[in-house]
Amino acid sequence: MSGYIERTIASLVAASERAAIAEQVAFSEGALQRVDPRVKVAGLFALIVVVAASRRLSVIAALFVIAAILAAASHVRMRRLAGWVWLPVLFFTGAIALPAIFLTPGHAVASLGITAITEQGLRAAAFLIGRAETASTLSALLVLTTPWPWVLKALRIFRCPMIVVAILGMTYRYIFVILQTALEMFEARQSRTVGVLPPSERRRLASSAAGVLLSKSVQMSGEVHQAMRSRGFRGEIHLLQDFRARATDWCWLAGFGLVAAASLWYGR
């Protein structure tokens, strides 16, 4: 291999780069970036609920296409969306859905010796994957087109509990610190490693790294919270930018509402 350590370092660097790109996209001048964060939270959340409730694959597919069009209009590249959202979701949901194709009783469409792929199984898998892909894409659109503090403030406006918002805020901040810490740990290890590590050593390294990172994360999260308190933080999110809904925001809200209502109707 290029070894386990090198691959881990490359993954950590890639994660940092993805975060930087996501920040750039959030501050760019795309269609969704111009929409009031409150409208985005309400509108995209409504669409996610509709996706979960829909009983028609065609409606879920239509919402997926709408999400993809919104992404394209918001400077979110399809290739990135595929790499960051669609493929990982397909991999994980696919792993869950795969047994359903064979185990769901119903009309067999293909026989595989002792078992068969059933029409009902395929539908169940398609629903699961379709819903997961579409809901994930809509969620990703919210976080990729909105600076994270604005998302948090919008959540507070919708009465999301303060403690949840505070945890989300600290998690976001801490991800970068833990990425950096992990990167430094593996780089330090790399500088003292010659040759290829045997599998047992790789497992030992992975488990010890996880343990050290957990311990550091507990300590660091305490310090970050202290630093926030030291400057007057009492759990509430305050921002310099005030949200002001303009005529176009009301149009977007109406648009989201119409799509959600129509999808709910056709998908019932």
């Binding site: 901040r173 610190v177 009492r234």
Partner: peptide
């Protein structure tokens, strides 16, 4: 690193005054 948790330097420096309204 524990003290810098905002998206931009401007937001970081503005964090304290914002908390104090």
């Amino acid at each position: 690193d524990v003290q810098l948790f905002n998206p931009t330097v401007f937001d970081e420096v503005a964090f304290g005054p914002l908390q104090l309204r």
